[in-house]
Write a protein that binds this DNA or RNA. Structure first.
Lengths: 225, 225
DNA sequence: CAAAATTATTAAAAATTTATTAAAAATTCA
DNA sequence: TGAATTTTTAATAAATTTTTAATAATTTTG
């Protein structure tokens, strides 16, 4: 699961900070808004990367319900409402508008994190980050490589070497650098071993093997041509 | 829908009746208890079929907190606490003890029903959900594994290891990660022990054993092929 | 252009990693 | 406690990967 962003909307900065700290600790990226208007602005600007919204009900300028309604016109992003006690009568109303969950203040951080996790799990599942380098698709989580949609088998060193090359796309890498990064720092072997692997990788990549360019006297470079 | 049973614990019979009427109307089965002691007795006798408890805090003989504590020693059944206004300061304390939700009196029946529905949805609703991984069906509640409809016996470690693998479907898991997650963090043993278990699991899965892929130099990966 | 330097290719040796098997140790359960 | 089961260890076999070494091909340089 990679880079999940949560928007926290609350007028109390102390509350925002509290929630932010806990969620960041769990590895989530955070965006903040201090009122309804700001929330809509931030949401609009980052719509594509926001995975969940924590939305306070009681806020100046534009309250949570209004924000909720606006957002629901264009998005199904999961929303958790933060309600102060005594606002319960509105809850039913909220469910109809597509609120996914309520958390009433004061709440324990544990509860908050648990609910956030639960909702994200059932909405995003796993959003994996696969990169496409001109038809070479690498899935780092699954450690797989596909060329034109067909998976190819790669050994550990082959995979790591290819990964290192594509991670440094368009950058010429010296043999030394490659050895230090793909092999252990204390590797003493022949630097010819790189060639062997490059050979095999190129072969497995087929036509796209030419993306690995030989930099004579230096090393290699990955470049989509 | 399966027969869902809710235990209502409150010393006021009028209150019990009110809640009961609404919930029965929604199709739930109801059990009642008029005080803490009775609640524990009823719970013990019907533990297996009770899906949720509505628990009043203020009661003679044995108050709600004590009942909560007792029940939490043996069960994770969802519990909603009914608090009178002014008891809010105890809530944080309650969440730590495993309270799922609070509703403060007086409340609207609609709210009550909405919360009950919401909690049941996320507890029974998705928990009973068995997952099917290409013919391997896992029921986390029953801790059972079926392959092509036939149940297979699995030891603790085998089950946990398989569960960890399928929970991380399509993700390559290093031996370290596996050890840290399936075994204790302080496990010092040989990492070869993983192989032994993998061997056994694969054997038990029969043809589908090949879903557990060896990631040479890394670890293993579960992938339905 | 020829020699030198560098990389590609090939095949085989060496090293590493995993699978398998069986037995020992630990744990559970009646 | 003792039997049964589970888990771990250990040893060996098997499979795969990595490295090495030797030769060929290519590029650079004087």
């Amino acid at each position: 699961m990679k880079d999940i962003t949560i928007l926290i909307v609350d007028d109390e900065s102390r509350m925002r900070k509290l929630i932010k700290d806990f969620l960041m600790q769990k590895g989530y990226s955070i965006l903040e808004a201090a009122n309804g208007e700001e929330a809509l602005k931030v949401f609009e600007e980052n719509q594509n990367k926001i995975n969940l919204i924590l939305l306070d009900v009681m806020m100046p300028k534009l309250d949570g319900w209004s924000v909720l309604r606006q957002i629901r016109q264009s998005s199904k992003v999961p929303i958790i409402m933060l309600t102060a006690r005594g606002e319960e009568q509105d809850e039913l109303f909220g469910f109809e508008l597509g609120v996914d969950e309520y958390i009433s203040k004061p709440f324990s951080p544990k509860i908050l994190v648990a609910r956030v996790d639960a909702i994200l799990k059932r909405t995003i599942g796993d959003k994996r980050e696969m990169k496409d380098y001109g038809g070479i698709v690498i899935d780092p989580e699954g450690r797989t490589v596909k060329v034109d949609g067909k998976q190819i088998e790669m050994s550990l060193r082959e995979y790591e070497l290819l990964k290192y090359l594509v991670d440094n796309e368009n950058i010429a890498l010296s043999r030394d650098k490659i050895l230090n990064n793909v092999w252990n720092y204390d590797y003493y072997g022949d630097s010819r071993t790189i060639d062997s692997h490059i050979k095999k990788i190129r072969h497995k990549l087929g036509k796209k093997g030419k993306y690995i360019e030989t930099m004579r006297g230096v090393g290699y470079k990955f470049e989509v041509k």
